[in-house]
Nucleic acid binder design. Structure first.
Lengths: 183, 183
DNA sequence: AAACAGTGCGACAATCTGACACATCCATGA
DNA sequence: TCATGGATGTGTCAGATTGTCGCACTGTTT
């Protein structure tokens, strides 16, 4: 990690070691200082000696969700720009993250350019594209499940009961990745 | 319930007339003053003589998207609580809406209770913990399918394509009864 | 008439779900 | 500290559902 004091500091918090390594190198090559953490807990340690200007956070990790880091990061540096980057993207977690102050939200897979683009430009424009097809039933189910899960603070058992679904079945669904819509 | 100047004003912007009517009546019955607009343009006219405290906006309508109304609504009443409610939900529009100041974002179908629950979030209402059971995934799927089917004039093949579902599977689902909720 | 798109349904393999069964954890209270 | 109850992570397995293919039939269009 090069320590040019002028470079912007970029923190990557993600489970997936391979992903982190690749992204870190790509970001680094573009002139940022980078730091990597494999969990929210580990990220907190990193923050003792690294105050990031930009960050990407994963949601689904062992231990705490990356979303819990948002307040900490903002407290440390109110100017920080935070991008949520997850393979388990859903509308409810996106809404929550933005409300907490995240700058933007992207579903994996996403390439380095997309990531940096989202972090650089973040002027809200009311002309976002609106999908022309409705959600697939699979996607709708995923979104609904995520919403209810959020309302129950991530409690799987309670969510399964609320949905009238077997807990085993819900767990199996949660392990899978959400359906990708090909808009 | 009194319907005088004390009642909160609720604006519904949606191009689905049936949906608006049903929602309007339900909201009305709960003691709000309601106004309905079938498009963003129409909504602007309504705003000349109706300053809402709460609003639901649809995204996909003829003309401008409901998202463009957010700044106007907030300018008119900074305290307004805005809920985006759409059948064409997506993460990118959700992110935009929240950034622009929407309070929350829900995918249709959603029932009146859910809608009000999301909008009432800020009110010091003591009934926050009343966890009304959400729709089951089966029920949600049924409603969604019916809606898309209607949009395609009952064309099963087209509906199956739009939903990314196999025609055979859709036919089988349509033969079954709607899922009954046993609250 | 030939070409087409939509519909209804049979059949079969691949998947998924519901039901049980355990084996940890963790917080609470006796 | 131990007992108790809830939550969670998995494994198994029979039965239900879905993905595919195929085929006959029916309007529509050219």
């Amino acid at each position: 990690m090069d320590t040019n004091s002028k470079a912007l500091r970029f923190l990557i918090v993600d489970d997936d070691e391979t992903f982190s390594r690749v992204l870190s190198r790509a970001i680094n090559r573009r002139g940022y200082d980078t730091a990597v953490a494999g969990s929210a807990e580990q990220a907190l340690e990193v923050l003792n000696e690294f105050t990031p200007d930009l960050a990407t956070l994963d949601l689904k990790m062992d231990g705490a969700s990356g979303i819990t880091l948002i307040p900490r990061l903002k407290a440390l540096n109110p100017e920080i720009r935070i991008l949520i980057l997850t393979g388990y993207a859903s509308i409810s977690t996106a809404v929550e993250a933005i409300k907490l102050g995240a700058t933007d939200y992207l579903a994996k897979p996403a390439d380095t350019d997309q990531i940096l683009a989202k972090l650089k430009g973040a002027e809200p424009d009311p002309d976002v594209e609106i999908a022309d097809k409705p959600m697939s039933v699979g996607r709708l189910e995923w979104e609904h499940i995520q919403k209810v899960l959020t309302e129950h603070d991530g409690n799987v058992s309670a969510t399964a009961r609320a949905l009238g679904m077997h807990r085993r079945t819900l767990q199996r669904k949660l392990q899978k990745r959400p359906v990708r819509e090909e808009h």
